[in-house]
Design a binder for these strands. Sequence first.
DNA 1: GGTAGACCTGGACGC
DNA 2: GCGTCCAGGTCTACC
Length: 293
Amino acid sequence: MKFTLPARKPFNFSSVVNSHGWRQLAPFSYDENTNALSHILRLSNGRVIELKMRAAGDGVNVETDKLNRKEQNEAANAVTWMFGLDMDFSDFYNASRAEPKLAHAKKQALGRVLRSPTLFEDVIKTILTTNTLWGATKNMTRKLVDEFGMSLDGKTGKRAFPDPASIAASRPEVLKEAVRVGYRAPAIHQLAVRVASGKFDLEALKHSSLPTLELRKELLSINGVGPYAAANLLMILGRHDFIPIDSWALKLVSHEWYEGKPVTAKEVEKRFAKWGEYKGLAFWFWDWKYTGG
DNA sequence: GGTAGACCTGGACGC
DNA sequence: GCGTCCAGGTCTACC
C-alpha cells in the first residue's frame, strides 16, 4: 500500500536524508538510483515491516505492506517523526538571513535532521559514533541489527533495529564479542535494561517540555553519553542550543577561521556564541570552506 | 575546573 | 602474515 504525508513548508526530502550519516546506518538503507530511503520497522504489535520513503512534492510518499488502520497510524507517526514533518524553522531562517554562510538555509529547507523512529535507536547509534571511525560505526550498527533485530520475513537479511528487551536479555559479553562494540558494551546493555524494565522512559524525552539544560542533564545521565553525544541527541530532539563538538568540528572551525591551526572547543563555542538557541543549526548547516582531505 | 590516561576496534603501514 | 601505530569521545582519578 501507499500513502503520502504532507510536511510544513519549506520541506526538501533530500535535505533531510543527507542531513547527516544516519541513512548509511542499519536498518536504514538508501537507493541512489531511485532516491528511496528504506527503514525496517518493528511495530508495537511485533509485526516487522519495510517502509520505502520517497520525495512527494512538499511531503513524503510511503510504500509498505498492507497495514490495518492502527498499523498505518503507527507507520505514519514514525515517518512524521523521522522527517520532522511538522517542524517549523522560520525563526532560524529569519535570524540567519543576513549571514552569507547560511543564506542557502531557507532555499534548501535546511534544519531538519534525519531521526530514527525511536530515541532508543538514536541514542545507541550516537554511542556507536563515539571514539571510533565512521566505518566502524557502520559495522557495529549492522552487527547489532543482525544479532538482535527481528527479521522482516524470516528469510532475508532485512532486520529491524533491536528493541531494548532483546538487548537487555543478552549479556554485555555478547555485545563485545559478537557485535564488537568493545568497551561500550556495558553502557549499551545498561541502557537497554533501564529502558526495558520501565525505569527510564527514554521515549518520553521526544516530546518533553523540560528546559534544554534539564533535558541535557537527562541525556548525560546515560552511561556513554558525554557532551558531544548529548549535543548530537539534542539536535535530533529539535533543541539547538549546543554544538556537537567532535574532532571533525574542530577541524572545520580550524580551517574556517584559524588557517588550519589546532583549536579547542572554546574557539568553536566562541565563533557560534551569537547564534544562541540556533547555535547547533548554524554550526550544522554552515557553508564550510573545509570539505575534508 | 582542568587534565592525563585508560578504554577498544579496525585500518594503515612497515617489515 | 604479523606487529605496531593511530584515530576517535567518555569516564575516572588526580591536582
